[in-house]
């Protein structure tokens, strides 16, 4: 059930803000905590106005310590609250890794279901914003590799709202990865639209030649590539995963089986990345429908480069089209 917020044009940042506000209005157990989330409204303004509306107890500027933030959130959740934690940037979530991996991910399992932890951990992630060192990591593979965590990443304004609502409502911990370079993209937002369940991929563009499988920051790049591919005679579908864990095998396999050719695109490094998992799953399940190996277009296997060089690292339209060209069309 949604609040009265009307349909309007919104940025992704505003949609996330609305999702937090609506969740806090509807459920007193929802608490926000993190660095600079109060007066400043977060460095990306995602928590703008929450302390003003709900008070410091509900939206708390914590001391500067990520392990402390997440560890405290665990205790709050044990007592029955529903904490939403903000990590300021991808690479600054790492001090909380111990709490995340050893406790958040495992508490339900360790306690035979007695202590589920309904914590949402919001993390702005990815590059493309000209950030200096440690401000552009794509850390999804670490989280996706950790059993017990859901990993969700919206790519549209509507999903930002809906998936954040669903994540907060989830009784399991969710690592909610926000593609920071899409924060300022605008679209219409209907907060009353039914909230999408987490775990469902969606076809953003239908096509008849091959499918680009992607998520988060790479979705607009794939849509652009699909547009450019028309000139080359390819009609590309674009699939937005939206949730990495749980993985929507059903939708992904249905699309791959119908087209027979697939390229996975993400900006995180390729080696041991989520693309490897996706390619393996698709190959295991759709082998006889495939006309070509599943290819990956990813960031290089390097530490994230300085901003003046990042465009060479990030998967772009040309690199995607090069991969599409290698999908064994001659057969």
């Amino acid at each position: 059930m949604s609040t009265a917020t009307p349909v309007r044009t919104s940025t992704m940042a505003q949609a996330l803000n609305a999702a937090l506000r609506d969740a806090m209005r509807e459920d007193r157990s929802v608490h926000v905590l993190g660095e600079d989330v109060g007066a400043l409204g977060g460095v990306f303004r995602i928590t703008d106005g929450l302390t003003a509306e709900f008070g410091r107890d509900r939206c708390l500027d914590t001391p500067l310590a990520e392990a402390g933030i997440l560890g405290t959130a665990i205790g709050m959740a044990m007592y029955g609250l529903r904490p939403v934690v903000e990590m300021q940037f991808d690479a600054f979530a790492y001090p909380a890794m111990e709490q995340l991996v050893s406790h958040v991910a495992k508490m339900r399992n360790r306690t035979a279901g007695k202590l589920p932890l309904p914590i949402t951990i919001r993390i702005p992630y990815g590059g493309g914003i000209g950030g200096v060192e440690h401000h552009s990591d794509s850390s999804e593979a670490y989280y996706a590799q950790t059993p017990g965590l859901h990993v969700v990443t919206p790519a549209t304004v509507g999903d930002a709202y809906g998936l954040l609502r669903a994540s907060i409502a989830s009784d399991d911990p969710v690592v909610f990865l926000e593609p920071k370079r899409l924060y300022w993209g605008k679209d219409s937002l209907d907060p009353a639209a039914p909230v999408e369940p987490i775990g469902r991929a969606v076809l953003r563009r239908t096509g008849s030649s091959a499918v680009l499988i992607t998520y988060g920051p790479s979705l607009p790049v794939c849509l652009e590539a699909a547009e450019a591919a028309k000139a080359e005679g390819w009609d590309l579908a674009v699939l937005d995963l939206r949730t990495l864990v749980p993985f929507d095998d059903e939708t992904v396999c249905r699309v791959v089986r119908s087209l027979g050719r697939a390229v996975v695109v993400h900006e995180a490094s390729g080696f041991g990345g989520t693309g490897a998992e996706i390619a393996a799953r698709v190959t295991e399940r759709c082998f006889h429908h495939l006309a070509a190996p599943v290819l990956r277009v990813t960031g290089f296997d390097i530490p994230y480069p300085p901003p003046m060089l990042e465009h060479h690292h990030l998967p772009g339209v040309d690199r995607i089209l090069d991969a599409v060209a290698r999908l064994q069309w001659e057969d």
Binding site: A91, F92, Y94, G130, V132, P306, M308, L309
Partner: peptide
């Protein structure tokens, strides 16, 4: 680092100055 063309622009060993550190 702050210009954005390289992470660490000086030789830490030669200058006995560690790289500028961002993770607090």
């Amino acid at each position: 680092l702050l210009r954005g063309n390289a992470h660490t622009g000086y030789d830490p060993r030669a200058t006995r100055t560690a790289p500028l550190c961002t993770p607090l």
